[in-house]
Computed example of a mutant assay.
Amino acid sequence: MAGAALTGFLTALSLILAIGAQNAFVLRQGLARSHVFALCLFCALSDAVLIAVGVAGFGTLVALVPGFPRAMALAGAAFLLVYGAARFRAAWRGGHALTAQGRAGTRTATLATAAALTWLNPHVYLDTLGLIGAVSTQYPALGQKLAFGAGAAAASFVFFFSLGYGARLLAPTMQSARAWRLLDLGIGAVMWALAAGLILGPAAPAG
């Protein structure tokens, strides 16, 4: 149970750790100290809903199409290999920059922007419904699957609240090209490790 929860936590954390439009927006709002709690809660709950659908949906598909999880796992592994390679390439090239600009808006406007960045982003669905759902198939037992999903959802809460409230501490560090390179190297290594796990499959039946 603990192993499944930890795998879920690390899988989700690795997928959301790369700075994108949504994360940059959360960081920006954190720097402005504007609607941080509402924004972080919205982003984390959105991820939790999508993760739950991904984990539950794959369980249903396993029963209907036994070969589907393996096919999806291989597709997920291919994406993770490419994504990991992109992170290694970014680490090699360097030149990252993240600026926090813009004025704080109302809470409604802030959450509307967050909704667009979350629910209109195709990568969110690929990460939660596809990749996290695929990795969850390594745990056929209901208890392990629930632990995996809970761990993945917990990663979203930890990440977004840490990013939002820790923004003022993180921003100076992340202005450093070296810090970005180390971050990208770490993400790339985790992505490739996950890809290897999907390709090789579970070492032994769960029990």
Score class of each variant (00 low, 15 high):
M1Q: 10
A4C: 12
A4P: 14
A5N: 05
A5D: 07
A5S: 09
G8H: 09
L10S: 04
T11F: 07
L13D: 05
I16W: 00
I16V: 13
L17V: 08
A18P: 00
G20F: 08
F25M: 14
L27R: 08
L27F: 10
G30I: 03
L31A: 14
L31E: 11
A32H: 03
A32S: 15
R33A: 15
H35P: 01
A38P: 04
L41E: 09
F42R: 14
C43E: 11
A44F: 02
A44E: 05
S46L: 11
V49A: 13
V49Y: 02
V49T: 03
V49I: 14
L50W: 01
L50T: 06
V55N: 11
F58T: 12
T60R: 06
T60I: 04
L61F: 10
L61S: 07
A63F: 07
V65P: 03
P66N: 10
P66F: 14
P66V: 12
R70F: 01
A71W: 11
A71F: 13
M72H: 06
M72N: 08
A73S: 15
L74Y: 00
G76R: 05
A77C: 01
A77M: 01
A78I: 03
A78K: 10
F79K: 13
V82G: 10
V82W: 13
Y83C: 01
G84H: 03
A86F: 09
F88P: 00
R93V: 03
G94P: 03
G95P: 01
A97I: 06
T99V: 13
A100H: 08
Q101K: 13
R103D: 15
A104P: 09
G105D: 13
G105L: 07
A109M: 03
A112K: 14
A114Y: 07
A115R: 02
A116P: 08
L120V: 03
N121C: 03
N121V: 02
P122N: 13
D127F: 06
T128Q: 08
L129A: 08
L131E: 02
L131Y: 00
V135H: 04
S136L: 00
S136Y: 09
Q138D: 12
P140C: 10
A141Q: 14
L142R: 15
Q144E: 10
K145T: 12
L146A: 14
F148I: 04
A150I: 02
G151N: 05
A154T: 09
A154I: 07
A154H: 03
A154Q: 02
A155V: 08
S156M: 11
S156W: 04
S156I: 10
F157C: 04
F160S: 06
F160P: 01
F161I: 10
S162K: 10
S162M: 13
S162G: 15
Y165G: 09
G166N: 06
A167R: 07
R168S: 01
L170Q: 10
A171W: 08
P172K: 00
Q175R: 12
Q175D: 14
S176Y: 05
W180P: 06
R181D: 01
R181W: 02
D184Q: 12
G186E: 14
I187R: 04
I187H: 11
I187N: 09
G188T: 04
G188K: 09
V190Q: 07
V190E: 10
M191A: 15
L194T: 06
A195D: 15
A196P: 01
I199E: 06
I199S: 03
G201C: 00
A203L: 02
A204H: 09
